[in-house]
Amino acid sequence: MPLSRFLRRFFGDPATSRKRAFLRSLDLFKDLRFVDLGHLVQSMHSRTYHEGEVLFMEGDIGRALFILESGQVQLTKAGPDGQPRKIYTIQPGEFFGEMALLEQLPRTATATAVERSQVLLLYRSKLESLLSSHPRIGVQIMTHLAQLLSARLRRAGGSGSPAGAGRTDSPTAGASSGAAATPAS
């Protein structure tokens, strides 16, 4: 309808619509409704990282989930000799640092922007607010995180690692979800 399209264009916020469309394209949020995505957009913070900027360092206390909107982010981990080893390159649409949403523990890898990258951050306490005020969103995220952990445990179990090795440092591949392909950080 031309009138509704005009009204949507006049009153609608294009920046929010773009973010909403991006979030809906992710496995993590694909089942959320229009208004839920609006709440999610408001709960997230956006930041541009320039090439070489460090998002977090191994050992920093993690408090946020990062979703890469555009650009590339390199995950590295210090080897026995203290030199950084590349473990994974995050591609747009993938998320990382999700363990911070479950526990405030030191990061297990360092994340550095390889090129100019646009990142969305979901802070832990914002997720907690969403869980209490909009349980549908919180449950969706937590379910996905549980599936992710389950997938990691299966892989760890399959490779003969102890059951508690959910926080694997090795890059994993072949997962159906793009998110599950990123190591915990």
Partner: peptide, 16 residues
């Protein structure tokens, strides 16, 4: 968002 953008990249989580 300007405050977050102005924070040193590594300390964005602390700023948040």
């Amino acid at each position: 968002s300007t405050t977050i953008q102005a924070a040193p990249s590594r300390y964005v989580e602390q700023a948040l």
